[in-house]
Design a protein around this nucleic acid. Structure first.
Lengths: 176, 176
DNA sequence: GCTAGCATGTAAACGGTTACATGATTAG
DNA sequence: CTAATCATGTAACCGTTTACATGCTAGC
């Protein structure tokens, strides 16, 4: 997931590690800033795998910046990751958001639509947070204020997202 | 987080591991089923720490069930975890949901309201997923279909949640 | 002079997943 | 008879966090 974010942001323009860190933090809604101990090793893995080029930029600031850019191999890997997200990446809202953020890099609208369709299928499967005697518990009968809130928010989110997904899938179909 | 879910569900009634697994899966919206390799060691840690009692129930099904119940120490730990969620547990929607699901076990409405207030404060801080030249990018100008969708869904979710939080905080204030 | 931000990195520990292992019961 | 579900457990691995480490620049 971290690697996807790195590849995705670098597909737009070359950046150094620190700037990457800022963008990744914003992408998650400031929910969970990336730690240095995760970011720099991930960058180094990608450099070692030939997916990133680096050029050290002496100058202005503190430590010399390593400006990173995507190689052709890196771009190919990015497209593979976007084409075939694993099931968790469809299912988990944070991970799916990461996929969405970079989905525009997939050149084929049919492939883009396919990813959206998988997400929609997951959201359309009936699901509930709580069960009582095997039956799903409805928001109004959750029994306490807090669970009612959870269900209310989840319902609103789901409806907005499903509406958008249907619209977007239609729009991508037209663009064929 | 896993441990919080275990303690939370067992605060309601004794359960065995497999049933716990089902409930935890549902709690996350079926987003990410707990793996056995995480659940059973977590249970054993809590048993070893004296937070859970176990009673083996021979019978009906396959492997003999271990029915788990919360000890007084376990309940005290649960309350501590609910009273003082770490910042990630306020920030990360999935983790915050877990806290919410069990917040009713906190006996003091003022403490419950305090947790909601922290979440509201986080949601009220202006945040954006993307920046262009330092400025936050608005949904309508995200530049591509997918980022527009992300921003649209995030906005709807945030509004629903903030509205609910304000209502709930008021309601808890009245119940004093 | 000091604090906050810029910029990069390593090592230990943690929480979790994946794969492996076992076996009984129930429904098709 | 066979697949799915119930039920529990271990070991290797993996990505990430936390803590540690360094040092420069800009603003107060």
């Amino acid at each position: 997931m971290l690697e996807l974010s790195i590849l995705g942001f670098l597909a737009e323009e070359p950046l150094h590690g620190y700037e990457l860190k800022e963008r990744i933090k914003a992408l998650s809604g400031h929910v969970r800033p990336v730690s240095d101990g995760a970011l720099y090793p991930a960058i180094n893995r990608l450099v070692a795998a030939g997916e990133l080029d680096q050029r050290t930029e002496e100058g202005a600031s503190a430590a010399p910046r390593r400006v990173l850019s995507l190689t052709e191999r890196g771009r190919a890997d990015l497209l593979d990751r976007l084409r075939g997200p694993k099931q968790v990446e469809i299912t988990d809202p944070v991970r799916f958001n990461t996929v969405l953020a970079f989905l525009r890099h997939l050149p084929d609208p049919a492939e883009q639509a396919e990813v959206l369709r998988r997400r929609l299928a997951f959201l359309e499967a009936p699901a509930s947070f709580f069960y009582r005697a095997g039956e799903p518990v409805r928001a109004e009968e959750a029994g306490d204020l807090f669970r009612e809130g959870m269900l209310r928010v989840a319902r609103a989110t789901g409806e907005t997202e499903r509406t958008w997904l249907r619209e977007a899938i239609t729009a991508l179909g037209r663009s064929r």
